[in-house]
Structure formats: structure tokens, C-alpha cells
């Protein structure tokens, strides 16, 4: 940019040329804009980006999480979860295990990244050891549930490509249906089909297609509540295995948003204090 300016001669004539050139640039930009029609890929990306933007600004949040399997009444796992918003790179989260007793005090830490693979660590209280947890274990089941490790994070926008499919009503809400295709290696899916509520920009439902492009699982987000008159959080996530009908439910309780969390609690060397 700078070098081009340097090369441009000064003077009244050149000033005239500049005006003409600028005019042309504006004209062409205008032309392009008119003739521009958004592709389905661009529309998908735009919807996904807008959805992520809509939820910006929660700063820090905490919740109590319970995991139930196959509609049983008693939870098989209980956690306390904390997330720290890091808009420029990717959020950070810790999961503090509360139940069952043999897992109490185990803490997992995740640093999500927009442009790199995520980093994860796990603190094991028995020997006070912090171990790196391989981010490649995406297809491993999370504690025997219908969720794999990959399903736990909603996924940063940059890690997928998108395609808008259609708009349709889902449970009385007008939704955009968007396919997203994982770009990272070792994903267990060819695509995930997402239903996004157009008014409030919330994910309502997600279908998972395995590498053979079979629809294997469906995740439902249920019982949304609005917090601080702005942020929507679900109270329930249910993953149903389409082949076996087995299901796993995550219950979210005591959502707290805009919580001041200490970023130093989200480093591997500080996990032991969180037990």
C-alpha cells in the first residue's frame, strides 16, 4: 500500500487521475455488490459466525452438570464446570469431578484453539499428577456415555466449513438448517447437521453423520432459559444413539454468567488447588 503511494506522481493532473480511478473503484465495488449472490457455503458460514457473535460477552460462566444414562433417574456422574471466555483464541474450561466417589477431585482442563488442535490436561489427585490428555482421543467415549470427547465442545467456527441447507420450522421456531464439515484430522464425522433458531441464534438440534455418512446420533438442546436478559443456556442436552436408542442426558444446573474467574486457575500447574 505504502509503496504504491510512493510511486504515484503528485500534481493537479495526477490528482484528476486519482479521482477518476477512485470513482472507478467505487463503481466496480458497487457492481460487484449488486451482482453478488451469496453461495450456500457463505450463507452457512455467515449464520454460524452470527450465532457465535450473538453469544459473545459472557466473560466467565459456571454450572453444575449431571450425567444420566438411558433415562435412569440417578446421575452416574456429577461435575462442576467453569468456562473462561477468550474470544481471540478459544475458550478455556475446567471440569471438576464430584461424583462418583472414586473420581471426586479429578479435574480436566481444556484450552480450545481456533486455529490449532485443542490442549487438554487431567489432574489425578491420587498421585497429584497433571497429565496431558491426548486431543486425538476424539472418538473415545466420554466416560462411557453416548458422547465422544469430540461432542463435548460446540466447536470453534474456524474448525469447520459450512453449507446452508434450508429454512424450516422446528418445534414452532423458524430455524436455519446448516451442515458443518469438520476440517480437523481424526474427526469421527463427515458432517453435523445443525438446526439454528433464527430469532435467538440458538442451536436446537444436531445430527451426527459418521464417516460412512450414516446418521448415527442426534443431540437435542432443551429447556432454554435466558440469563442476564440476554444469554440463552439450555438446561438439558440429550444425545440419542439412532442405532441402539441408548441415550445420555446432561443436566445443567445453576448457570452463572459474567462471573469473574481467575485466568490463573486455568493453567495446568494450578489445577491441584481446585479439588
Amino acid at each position: 500500500m505504502k509503496s504504491r503511494k510512493k510511486g504515484f506522481p503528485n500534481g493537479p493532473v495526477n490528482f484528476f487521475i486519482r479521482i477518476v480511478l477512485n470513482g472507478l473503484v467505487i463503481y466496480f465495488a458497487f457492481l460487484v455488490n449488486i451482482s453478488y449472490s451469496e453461495t450456500v457455503e457463505e450463507k452457512g458460514l455467515r449464520i454460524a459466525t452470527a450465532m457465535e457473535r450473538r453469544d459473545d460477552g459472557w466473560i466467565g460462566q459456571t454450572a453444575d452438570v449431571e450425567m444420566l444414562v438411558n433415562q435412569q433417574k440417578d446421575p452416574v456422574y456429577k461435575f462442576h464446570a467453569r468456562w473462561l471466555e477468550k474470544p481471540e483464541d478459544g475458550d478455556k474450561g475446567v471440569l471438576i469431578y464430584k461424583y462418583p466417589s472414586d473420581m471426586r477431585g479429578v479435574i480436566s482442563l481444556a484450552h480450545l484453539h481456533r486455529f490449532m488442535t485443542n490442549d487438554m490436561w487431567i489432574f489425578i489427585p491420587r498421585n497429584k499428577r497433571v497429565k496431558r490428555f491426548s486431543s486425538q482421543k476424539k472418538n473415545s467415549s466420554f466416560l462411557g456415555s453416548q458422547f465422544t470427547n469430540e461432542d463435548l465442545n460446540r466447536g470453534e467456527v474456524e474448525k469447520y466449513s459450512y453449507r446452508w441447507i434450508r429454512d424450516e420450522d422446528y418445534e414452532g421456531l423458524l430455524c436455519s438448517v446448516v451442515d458443518r464439515f469438520p476440517e480437523e484430522s481424526n474427526s469421527g464425522y463427515t458432517k453435523q447437521r445443525i438446526w439454528i433458531d433464527q430469532k435467538e441464534q440458538r442451536v436446537m438440534k444436531m445430527e451426527f453423520y459418521n464417516l460412512k455418512n450414516f446418521h448415527i446420533k442426534t443431540l437435542y438442546f432443551k429447556e432454554f432459559k435466558q440469563y442476564l436478559k440476554y444469554f440463552w443456556r439450555e438446561s438439558k442436552r440429550i444425545m440419542i444413539n439412532e442405532q441402539t436408542d441408548a441415550s445420555t442426558t446432561f443436566l445443567f444446573k445453576n448457570w452463572k454468567l459474567k462471573v469473574e474467574l481467575n485466568e490463573n486457575d486455568f493453567v495446568p500447574t494450578r489445577l491441584k488447588k481446585l479439588r
Partner: peptide
Amino acid sequence: YIFDGIWGTGMDLG
């Protein structure tokens, strides 16, 4: 080396 989601299940092998 991590083999992940082996045999199409949720198991993994290191």
C-alpha cells in the same frame, strides 16, 4: 501412540 475409537467403539488404546 494413541489408537482412538478402535473397532468403531468408544475404546482407545495407547
